[in-house]
């Protein structure tokens, strides 16, 4: 199931130090290890957390991988990418 392999990738990128290092070194090469379609690879590489959640990926994983691996890491940007209207972002300072 497509969602399952993406969750496997995002869990690795949230938790596993070796995976994080390899992804940073060469993200495309790292993702080739998994049975991903090109469109899914693009979603992961572009940190398209909205599209990933729409596929059923657990939001805790999209958040974890965002915080650990995205160039930005800002939760404000994360919420913007999800399409948040910003109404419920009182805790976000950065």
């Amino acid at each position: 199931m497509k969602r399952d392999v993406i969750e496997r990738v995002l869990w690795s990128l949230s938790i596993d130090r070796f995976s994080k290092v390899k992804f940073k070194e060469n993200p495309n090469k790292f993702l080739m290890r998994f049975a991903l379609e090109d469109a899914d690879i693009e979603k992961i590489l572009s940190f398209d957390v909205k599209a990933l959640q729409e596929m059923g990926v657990n939001p805790m994983l999209t958040m974890g991988y965002w915080v650990e691996m995205s160039p930005d890491k800002s939760m404000r940007t994360y919420n913007q990418k999800l399409g948040s209207d910003g109404v419920h972002s009182a805790s976000i300072k950065g």
Binding site: P59, N79, L82, S84, V87, A90, I92
Partner: peptide, 10 residues
């Protein structure tokens, strides 16, 4: 609480 979703903070 909403964790990692666009409603987070609600």
């Amino acid at each position: 609480h909403w964790v990692g979703t666009k409603e987070s903070g609600k």
